[in-house]
């Protein structure tokens, strides 16, 4: 299922699970900077190996990793081929390897951290925004809603595709995009109302 390409917290008691959400987000940030600077095939291979080691230490099921890799293959394989042909294999490995490593590392963080814990970190980190009149709680809520919305929209996309199959329509990007956008907007509308009802604006 496509929805599982976007991983979500899997309860556990490993070292990775017990590490604070703030630390994990900092590591993610640092890894992003490092991979932007160092992209030789060896450096990328090392980064990839470290990420895999992280999954092993977190004792996450192998199939979670495989599923994510399969989900990424759609983007990674054409991208690699493209870079290989138009640049060099070194560039290809560098670009695609760092991209895959970063997505997997982000996945490792979300798989081992409760959303609430991440939201709390973001709320604390955004405390200075209060002086600019921005409510940090709102920023945190937007983050949580963003994660939740990815799942909802993937579900809506599946519904649209199934409805089209059922009516025997052939897949065309527009016949897919239009109903998906309409449903997403309707969802956003209802969500806004539900948030008000749950006292978000109060």
């Amino acid at each position: 299922m496509a929805a599982q390409a976007v991983p979500l917290y899997l309860p556990g008691s490993s070292v990775v699970h017990r590490t604070g959400a703030g630390t994990k987000l900092l590591v993610l940030l640092a890894a992003g900077v490092a991979l932007a600077l160092w992209r030789s095939p060896w450096q990328v291979a090392l980064a990839f190996a470290l990420v895999l080691a992280g999954y092993a230490v977190a004792r996450l099921p192998l199939r979670t990793l495989v599923r994510q890799l399969l989900g990424l293959a759609w983007v990674a394989v054409p991208l690699l081929a493209f870079q290989w042909i138009f640049a060099s294999w070194q560039t290809g490995i560098g670009v695609v390897g760092s991209f895959v490593s970063m997505v997997l590392l982000a996945g490792l963080v979300t798989l081992t951290t409760r959303t609430t814990a991440m939201v709390d970190v973001v709320v604390r980190a955004c405390g200075w925004l209060r002086r600019l009149g921005v409510d940090p709680e709102r920023v945190g809520l937007m983050l949580a809603l963003g994660i939740r919305s990815v799942h909802v929209v993937i579900g809506l996309a599946q519904e649209v595709r199934e409805a089209q199959h059922a009516r025997g329509l052939r897949a065309s990007p527009r016949a897919f995009a239009v109903p998906l956008i309409v449903r997403s907007l309707r969802h956003a509308d209802r969500l806004g109302e539900a948030l008000t009802a749950r006292g978000v604006d109060d």
Partner: peptide, 29 residues
């Protein structure tokens, strides 16, 4: 409005639009 919403719970038709947090316990909390 604020006082009223604290006392009046509202449940809509489409449950997907009412769930705002990614996991079950987080949404209740």
């Amino acid at each position: 409005g604020r006082e009223v919403r604290r006392r009046v719970g509202f449940c809509f038709t489409d449950p997907d639009a009412q769930i705002v947090m990614p996991t079950v316990a987080e949404d209740v909390a």
